[in-house]
């Protein structure tokens, strides 16, 4: 075969060229991505259960109490600068679904002080949904939290459908709500 013969006599040239183009292509594809992003192994699996005290209240907040409806779990803290960026969006979202059971929201106050968290809400507006207190970060560890704010979208069986690291945007919320099967 002519091609095979040509390859045999010029194998190193072809290999070198292919390797070069492959490596350059790899670099080009790699530019501009976020090196600090870590994909979550929880996606497609059941979210970790938790039982935590409620912020500013006397009761407990558990994941189990939200079973039966899609849940948005949002990790936040008063020391997290980026959390203020998404705060208003979250408040709006909470108010939108406050009366229906289409989507439930729960916040988790991560490695924060009670006074700091309450002051944050007093200044920027209270969340219209409960927040749990994860003082030592164990629940955050279970969720694989590494950089606030982080938001998890769960379906009605408690399975994690999506995770977003960084402040939420309206577009992202819409996209993930659609994935959960909700109409706008």
């Amino acid at each position: 075969m002519a091609i095979a013969e040509k390859f045999r006599s010029q194998w190193w040239q072809i290999t070198l060229l292919a390797a070069l183009i492959g490596i350059m292509g790899l670099f080009f594809a790699g530019l501009g991505r976020d090196v600090s992003f870590i994909p979550s192994p929880l996606i497609g699996r059941a979210a970790p259960q938790f039982v935590l005290p409620e912020l500013g209240g006397k009761g407990e907040v558990t994941l189990a109490q939200f079973r039966g409806a899609p849940v948005i779990v949002n990790f936040w803290a008063s020391w997290c600068a980026a959390c203020s960026q998404e705060h208003d969006l979250l408040v709006q979202l909470g108010q939108r679904f406050a009366d229906s059971n289409q989507v439930r929201l729960v916040g988790i106050n991560y490695k924060d002080s009670e006074s700091g968290a309450l002051r944050f809400q007093a200044k920027r507006g209270a969340f219209p949904y409960p927040s749990a207190v994860d003082r030592n970060g164990r629940v955050g560890l279970d969720f694989g939290v590494y950089g606030l704010p982080e938001t998890f979208f769960l379906d009605d069986t408690g399975k994690v459908i999506a995770k977003h690291v960084g402040p939420l945007t309206a577009r992202l919320i819409a996209k993930n709500l659609a994935q959960l099967g909700l109409k706008q």
Binding site: M24, F27, F28, G30, L31, G32, R33, V35, S36
Partner: peptide
């Protein structure tokens, strides 16, 4: 300098710079 790797030694990254250097290198 490209921001393509995470390292304690890395300079601050800038996508434009990365593209230019990569083109030059290619």
């Amino acid at each position: 300098r490209s921001g393509i790797l995470s390292s304690v030694h890395a300079f601050a990254s800038d996508p434009d710079r990365g593209v230019y250097i990569l083109l030059f290198l290619s």
